[in-house]
Structures are given as structure tokens and as C-alpha cells.
Simulated assay, not measured.
Amino acid sequence: MQGNLNEIDIRSLLELIELGQRSGFLWVETDNNAGKINPYNQRQEEKSQWLIFFDSGQIIYAVEGESDTSKIDDYLRYYRVKDWQNCIELASLSSSVIPEYGYLWALLEQKIITPNQARNIIYSLVSDVLFDLFSLHQGSFSFCNALVLEPQVTTFEISSLTSEISQQTLDWKKLYPYIQSPRQFPILTDIEKLSSNLPQPTVNKLKHWANGQTSLRQLARCLNKDTVTVAKAIYPYMQDNLVRMVYSNTRKLSIQSQPNRKNRIICIDDAVTTVKSIESTLHAGGYDAIAITSPLEAIGQIFNIKPDLIFCAFTMSDLDGWEICAMLRNSSTFRKVPIIILGTSCKFIDRIRAKMVGATDYLSKPFQNNELLVLVDKYLQSQPAFK
């Protein structure tokens, strides 16, 4: 199931998934609307992507953009978890599709957080994703039937979530034009006036949070509140010109300042010997290659690192390569990324089938190392690393 958001809205799409009790994941991506204001008055500075995982019509987890464990750290501050700064190493203990989810599961497994805290964190993260998605009217989506995200911490009914988020979006509209996006940063405009009109404890709190370094959404996470509730609390100060919202370009600048990197290649095949051989050959050829034997894990990796080329086996146990290829071709981000199908047959019909699902080329197993490198050079030699 795939299509465009101008044909069906996110809420209706979620209701269909719930009604059909479907399991798998939904990939949503915005169109290239940089700098435009969408109908909910949230500025989209760059293309965004989301993943939502389902089990039997219920939501398991959701993530926006690159999987970022710092979101979890914000909640660890709120719950006053001891030595939370050292907990990041726990992310490596899990082989989860989404590193952020693996980090959360490791914290739970090590009894650093309680099951109730884990559920509350996931609920907040899922709510944030749905809040963003409910504002979208342009973009594309693709639903893939696959094994569910494991191990499961909790599940949420879609109907109750959508009702709550719909009310939040209505409340959010009332804050415009003072507040336009959860990604804006509150800053103080007149500290002297603030101090003369408010109690000192309130002033101190505003100084701490409205420092131009903490986004509205991050502030909500640190306070364990939903974004709209926090925005409503700040709103009166903005009306009195004591606080204003700004957009920060810090993250964008840090991305632009990164030096050119090696081309990244992902190799997906549930045959361990095949992907390890490809990985070794590509490393020797000067490429940054990642071997993945789980198709579901590969989806998370593709979503996070945005590879410059993908090798993908045609037939796998959990998720076929043609399904992965078709899904990626529905995404504007990966529409032009070279995808080379790894097949076990030299038959012409298999090559045609690979082309039909959008593959760039076809490589029949077994193959020689020089065949592999010739194909990689063909598609990456004149192509810069993915930015």
C-alpha cells in the first residue's frame, strides 16, 4: 500500500491500518517544500521522514528523522536517572531496527527505567510523531507488511491516540502567529521587565529554559508534557513581548560543515557469507560498507544513514528485496539511489522483474570480486557522497 497524502490524510490511513489489524511499518516522507508554511503553520525547512511500526492494528513505536538517543536522554533527566550520561553505551546491547528503540529497551532490560516509565516515554514520542503527521497534506507514504518491531515494550490503540492528537492540533492553531513550530526556540526579550512583573522563581525558570538553546519540543520532553501544553504556558509571555520564538540554524550548519565522507553502501542478504564477502571486498576498495542480514534492520539503517548505493537480495525470509526496492522508489529521497538486486538466476525474466520494481541493475550469484567493484564504480565513480 502506497500513495500520496493529497489523496488520503494520515488519520484516515491510520484508521485503515487499525481496521485491517495490519502489522508492519508505515514510511511517510514530505515533499521538497523547503521554506514553505504548511496548513498548520509549521515551517518545513527541509525534507522530513517518519517511520511508524504496527502490530495487529496497534502502534508499537514511531520515529522522526534520524534515530536520535538524545530524545530518550531528555526523559532520563526528568526521571532523574542516576548516571544517565553513561547509559548511551546500552544502545549497542540491542540489535533493534531502530537504535533509539534499542536504547530504550536496553534501559528497561537493565532496570535503569521502569516499565511504566518506558511506556510513558514511548507514548510521548509516538504522540510527537502523530502531531507532526497530522499537519501534513503533501508527501508520500508506503506501508510494508513485515514482521513487527521486537522486542515489544507496549502497544497503543490508534483510535484513542488520533482523537487526542486531533484536539491538540486544533489547540495548536490558536497559538499562531506567536508560535509556529515545535522546533522553534524560545528566548527572553526583556529580562528587566520580566523581573519587575513576575516572581523571581518564575523568572529563574524562564531564564533556564528560554535560552535559545532548547527547542519547544525538547522543553516538553524535559518537562514530560505534551508540546501544546508547554506552548500554552509560554503563550501569555509572548503576548506581553517578554518571550519570542526563533528558528535555529545550528544543526543545519553543523551538517554542512562536515567534511566529505566516503560513499556509503548497504548490503542486504540473509545469507551471512554473501554480505560479509561483499562488505570485505568493498572495504578493501575504499568504500564504507555495512553488511546486514535482517531486512527489517536494513530498513532502519537505510532510514538513518541514507546510503549512496544498496545491494539487496531478491529473495529473503522476512522481507523480499523487491518489496524493499519498490518501497524505496516510492520515496523521493531514495528514488535515484542505485539499487543492485542480488539474484540466484541468470534468467532474463529475473532481470526484467528487477527492472519492474525499480532496481538499477542486477548481479547474479555467485560473482567475482571484480564484477562487484566494476558495478560499484559504474554507479558511484562520478557520484558525490549522499548529502
Rank of each mutant, 00 (worst) to 15 (best):
G3W: 10
I8G: 07
L13I: 02
E15W: 03
I17P: 02
Q21D: 05
F25T: 04
W27S: 14
W27T: 03
T30W: 01
N32H: 11
N33C: 07
A34D: 13
G35L: 04
Q44P: 00
E46H: 13
F53M: 08
A62W: 06
V63W: 06
E64I: 08
G65A: 00
D68Q: 12
I72Q: 06
R77G: 11
R77W: 04
R80P: 06
K82H: 06
C87M: 13
I88L: 07
E89V: 13
S94I: 02
S95T: 11
S95H: 11
P99F: 09
E100Y: 08
L108C: 09
L108H: 10
K111I: 01
I112R: 14
P115A: 03
R119D: 07
L130K: 06
L133G: 09
Q138H: 12
F141I: 09
F143R: 01
L149G: 04
E150M: 12
P151E: 01
F156T: 07
E164R: 14
I165N: 10
Y176R: 04
Y178D: 10
P182D: 03
Q184G: 03
F185T: 09
F185R: 03
P186R: 04
I187Q: 14
L188R: 04
K193V: 03
S196P: 00
H208R: 15
G212C: 02
T214G: 00
R217E: 14
L219N: 01
T227N: 05
T229G: 01
A233M: 14
N241C: 05
N241D: 15
L242W: 06
L242P: 15
V246W: 00
T250L: 12
L253E: 11
S254K: 13
R261P: 00
N263G: 12
I268C: 07
V272T: 13
T274K: 02
T281Q: 11
H283D: 11
I290E: 10
A291D: 05
A291S: 12
T293L: 00
S294E: 12
E297W: 00
G300P: 11
N304M: 01
P307H: 03
P307W: 09
P307F: 04
L309E: 04
D318P: 04
L319M: 09
W322F: 13
A326Y: 07
R329I: 08
S332A: 12
K336R: 12
V337I: 15
V337Y: 01
P338D: 02
I341V: 15
C346Y: 11
K347N: 13
D350H: 14
I352C: 09
A359Y: 00
A359K: 00
T360E: 10
T360A: 13
D361G: 02
S364N: 10
F367N: 05
N369H: 09
